[in-house]
């Protein structure tokens, strides 16, 4: 029992939560934007893989770290564009297109990796983002080390939540985005373009997903491995539902999941952990997330037009 208390009062545990949550927050915000506009983007998993690869290879090729982030974002937007064209003007099934995008983005990343580094057995490392202390705040005992000594991308992730929430609820653009996911004919009847809004949302959202992937290579692991995204994209789909399509609640969900994840790693190292197979600990965040999802999604207010293609002039 003491060991668990020790974990909970260590600053590094709380710092780890923010770090683990960051890629989830980027990708969850990306998915949330898409879904708020009425498009389910199941390409998320593959787009994260592509973002992780594109950002890393760009930095390996000599670009600065922020250049890598930008390249990752552009790669995500490119796959977002394909998704958007197929699902919005062509109105194809969003499930099928999304899974297709995941498959093609993942395999394109692996293929490009093999093409660019044919000889290596282990991937080369890059110099990743280093933690930046926020002046003043990082000197606060405990809280400073726990919260204000993170890499720039982590701060950027939380800033993104603010921007997404502000745009959605406080600007005409956000109003139009929320409306197009609820009733596209309301948007058309007010003289706006359903196609432009939805495509824009999918493209920008996919860009954010790719930044989430790039966090893994540019901020967390400093290298690119196959399978490194490891289902995080699917977790983000669940987090959007968990957060009832609200940016702040989805962020809380990401933190909760990250908390369970950080906890299970540390539990493995306790005396109790020596007795239990480590796979049990790996399951913990997923099991707890499923439980939380069951409890939360009962009062979920799903956008009414989610997954419904809009064809102009059809009865």
């Amino acid at each position: 029992m003491n060991e668990i208390v020790d974990i909970l009062i260590s600053a590094s545990f709380w710092a780890a939560i923010l770090r683990i949550a960051s890629p989830l927050i980027f990708a969850t915000m990306g998915e949330l934007i898409c879904e708020r506009a009425g498009v389910l983007n199941l390409g998320i998993e593959g787009i994260m893989v592509m973002g992780a690869f594109a950002g890393w290879i760009a930095v390996y090729a000599g670009l600065p770290l922020w250049g890598g982030v930008a390249v990752a974002m552009l790669s995500g937007m490119a796959f977002g564009l394909i998704h958007a064209v197929l699902t919005v003007p062509f109105g194809l099934s969003q499930h099928v297109v999304g899974i297709g995008i995941t498959l093609i983005a993942t395999s394109s990343a692996y293929y490009a990796y093999r093409l660019s580094l044919p000889e290596v057995t282990s991937p080369p490392r890059i110099e990743p983002f280093q933690p930046v202390d926020i002046p003043g705040l990082s000197d606060i005992p405990f809280i400073g080390t726990a919260l204000f000594s993170q890499t720039p991308l982590t701060y950027f992730a939380f800033f993104t939540v603010l921007v997404v929430a502000f745009v959605l609820y406080r600007t005409p653009l956000g109003l139009a985005l929320r409306a197009v996911g609820e009733n596209p004919s309301a948007v058309e009847a007010q003289g706006l373009s359903v196609t432009a809004l939805r495509m824009g949302a999918v493209i920008v959202g996919s860009g954010l997903m790719a930044v989430g992937g790039a966090f893994l290579t540019l901020s967390a692991f400093s290298s690119f491995f196959f399978e490194m995204v490891n289902g995080r994209g699917w977790i983000c789909i669940a987090l959007v539902v968990f957060g009832a399509w609200s940016p702040s609640k989805a962020m809380m969900g990401a933190l909760l999941f990250a908390g369970f994840d950080a906890l299970q790693v540390r539990l493995q190292q306790t005396s109790f952990g020596a007795m239990v197979p480590y796979q049990v600990f790996l399951m913990i965040p997923y099991i707890l997330s499923i439980l939380a999802l069951v409890l939360m999604s009962r009062r979920a207010n799903v956008p009414a037009a989610l997954m419904v293609p809009y064809n102009r002039g059809e009865r």
Binding site: T171, P172, L175, A176, R178, E182, A186, Q190, G191
Partner: peptide
């Protein structure tokens, strides 16, 4: 042509201002 999850005011405002 109304978005059911938004307020009356937001439905009226929709599309009236530059995005």
């Amino acid at each position: 042509t109304l978005a059911d999850n938004m307020t009356v005011l937001d439905n009226i405002l929709l599309g009236t201002e530059s995005l």
